[in-house]
């Protein structure tokens, strides 16, 4: 039996873990988008009945995890470990959510790539036989991200054409060694790529090279052509990052164009005031846990490569003049 590693960065799973259930909770603006009806819960406001936005984000994550566990017909106690992270300092949304759930936590920080990172590690834990029921989850909240990374929310700041809108969304999946549903068949761990971009209001351009690098590594390692997948979906490059990624695909000689899209572009309507599109951990998470997995269950989507992209800078590194290092992880989800 050959090992599980392929090429340099990719692993394949011998007993592909099953996504037995998923849940998504989104904010009011995401609910107004084209996929609004696919999400399990659309919040009427940004507070979710809490006193602060940070608490609201943590509650979104917690409730999404609970809902996913519920939908898998499991009890919270059945879950052996939760892999979760978010954008906030010290990943407090995940920490406090896991505190309230009193579940073992492996906290992750992959910025907006966290959904793919948690799925990838969760799948390894399950396929490796260490655990049989794990939860992978992540969240982001527009206002908590804004105040931590950019400006106070009431400050009059003009967005640029490249500015992206951090999605208010949380997504969670239950991964099990057995059951029915889409399976995670392979995954690629991304390298940190930095093309010297320094513009905090143009994250798509910073992240696009990392996404393309990981997609190329994935295809090369598995000796697959892009059309193996029905859809290759990046996490949150937005309109501009997507356009750049398409140019880079041509340069690298991979042509997934008709089957390529980006969650940040899909999540919102043209006429929603989000400039270059969505971003944030929740962007890829809610798209996966809402519309994508539903379409896989229905059978209208069979092979998906989710490439969640994350920008790994901090406000401190930006003030110190550093450029934006980016990472992208890929997970292949297939429905038999």
């Amino acid at each position: 039996m050959p090992g599980k590693k392929r090429g340099k960065q990719t692993v394949v799973f011998h007993n592909p873990p099953v996504i037995t259930s998923s849940a998504s909770i989104v904010g009011p603006d995401e609910g107004k988008g084209p996929f609004g009806s696919y999400f399990d819960q659309v919040l009427p406001d940004y507070m979710f009945g809490e006193k602060t936005w940070e608490k609201a984000e943590s509650k979104m994550l917690r409730e999404a995890v609970k809902l996913a566990i519920n939908k898998a017909n499991l009890k919270e106690d059945d879950i052996e470990v939760i892999l979760a992270g978010d954008l906030l300092n010290q990943t407090i949304s995940a920490n406090y959510a896991a505190r309230d759930l009193s579940l073992p936590l492996l906290g992750l920080y992959g910025a907006c790539s966290t959904m793919a990172e948690s799925l990838l590690l969760g799948a390894m834990l399950v396929d490796g036989g260490f655990f049989s029921k794990v939860v992978a989850a992540t969240s982001s909240h527009h206002h908590t991200a804004e105040r931590q990374f950019r400006f106070p929310t009431e400050q009059g700041v003009q967005p640029t054409v490249t500015t992206q809108w951090t999605a208010t969304a949380a997504g969670a999946v239950v991964l099990q060694s057995e059951g029915s549903g889409p399976r995670i068949t392979a995954a690629t761990v991304g390298k940190v790529v930095d093309m010297g971009q320094k513009d905090m209001s143009n994250m798509g351009s910073a992240m696009a090279p990392a996404a393309v690098d990981t997609i190329k590594a994935h295809l090369d390692d598995l000796k697959r052509s892009p059309d193996y997948y029905d859809l290759i979906l990046t996490g949150d490059l937005g309109k501009i990052g997507k356009a750049i990624a398409e140019e880079l695909f041509v340069v690298k000689g991979i042509v997934p164009k008709p089957f390529y899209n980006d969650c940040g572009v899909l999540l919102y309507d043209e006429n929603q005031d989000v400039n270059a599109g969505g971003s944030g951990c929740g962007c890829a998470a809610c798209m996966l846990c809402g519309p994508l997995l539903k379409k896989m269950q229905e059978g209208s989507l069979k092979k998906l490569l989710l490439v969640a992209t994350g920008a790994l800078m901090s406000p401190t590194s930006m003030f110190q003049g550093e450029s934006i290092p980016c990472v992208a992880h890929a997970v292949a989800v297939e429905m038999n």
């Binding site: 054409v161 490249t162 093309m195 010297g196 971009q197 143009n202 351009s205 090279p209 501009i240 356009a243 750049i244 140019e247 880079l248």
Partner: peptide, 10 residues
């Protein structure tokens, strides 16, 4: 890459 970004960026 900068040139590419500036070309694509509206």
């Amino acid at each position: 890459y900068d040139d590419l970004v500036n070309k694509v960026k509206p």
